[in-house]
Design a protein around this nucleic acid. Structure first.
Lengths: 194, 194
DNA sequence: GTCTATAACCCGATAGAC
DNA sequence: GTCTATCGGGTTATAGAC
């Protein structure tokens, strides 16, 4: 029965996003999942393996859970980029600028080498960048032909992550909105130049 | 004698930047500073107060320790922005992409309300943005007159912080360089448009 | 597979002599 | 102001019955 595994996974997902990995104790996960310690340690070697499972779940869910809802009613590839950024804005807004991007939070929390965790964080970032790169590729000749689409996608990610960081610190959406507006004006300049 | 206080402060500054606040124990600080527990708790109410002292030190040092060295041989205001970003690149480069911006690291580590800490993180970001805003103001009519100088400064900060996050995760300078190159091309477009 | 109880450890902080 | 020893509590993880 992997129902228990699901309960642990989703409880951990929520807690890591809310309080971070380090500040979440195994006891917190057990309580939130309504599961006992024996069950968790029967299913996972340890706490870090729960994190690995969570990161794998984010990666597997990036298309069905993140991109598909964000893009349901938007077909213009350039607008899809900003529709995705709006999802992060909504997350910030509905949590008083507390919750931003769960991957980014964990990425800066990591300080030890910790290769298996870093590898999965990188895979999540890579998948995000690849999806946005595809949007800019789909924009075709509306963008300058010599523009590096992947570089612009990386720029969109740094804008989002940096904006989340500042908005969480200031507890206002202002910085996030400012950063996205600047990205928008950059894209507009590129569209005009093509 | 505040020599002990200095030893603690600088040991903590280095450790928080290397391993983060949560992963640094008081014992780590004591060992690195060559100081005993009694002395630390005589000088500080607790561990968090050491962090507040460190953040105040960063804020006080932003001009003499960060901006002045970065700008010693550069007078062009726009080039000063990129000279500052180069400092962060050097920090990443000389630490195998482990150490980036200490303020940003702690900012995303914070998950509890923790008002006194957040307040100081915000003050550090604000001072950084104000200094860069001044560069763009000093650029005068080389930039479009209707350009929001502060917004562009926020954008520079999100670019740096986002770039540091990705470079630390991938353990390569590539993402940082890409993000800065995109910012550069945005600024170039603005300069051409003015 | 799930439960309870607990081991083994590290943490921040304190006490009290000097 | 500085030292050593230690307290009390929370941590991850395990043992062993069911």
């Amino acid at each position: 029965m992997s129902e228990t595994r699901d309960k642990i996974r989703f409880a951990a997902m929520r807690l890591f996003a809310q309080k971070g990995y380090g500040s979440t104790s195994v006891a917190d996960i057990l309580q939130a999942a309504g599961v006992n310690a024996g069950s968790l340690y029967y299913l996972y070697p340890g706490k870090q393996d729960v994190l690995l499972d969570v990161l794998d779940t984010y990666l597997a869910g990036i298309h069905p859970m993140l991109l598909a809802p964000a893009w349901a009613e938007i077909s213009d590839p350039v607008e899809r980029v900003f529709a995705l950024l709006r999802r992060y804005r909504s997350a910030l807004e509905s949590t008083d600028c507390t919750y931003g991007c769960p991957i980014g939070s964990i990425a800066l929390e990591l300080h030890e080498p910790d290769p298996p965790v870093r590898e999965r964080l990188a895979a999540n970032f890579d998948a995000w960048v690849a999806a946005i790169e595809q949007c800019f590729v789909d924009a075709g000749d509306r963008l300058p032909s010599d523009l590096d689409r992947r570089a612009l996608a990386v720029f969109a990610l740094t804008t989002m992550e940096g904006g989340v960081m500042l908005s969480r610190t200031h507890r206002t959406l202002d910085d996030f909105d400012t950063a996205v507006a600047m990205l928008r004006s950059h894209v507009d300049l590129l569209l005009a130049r093509a």
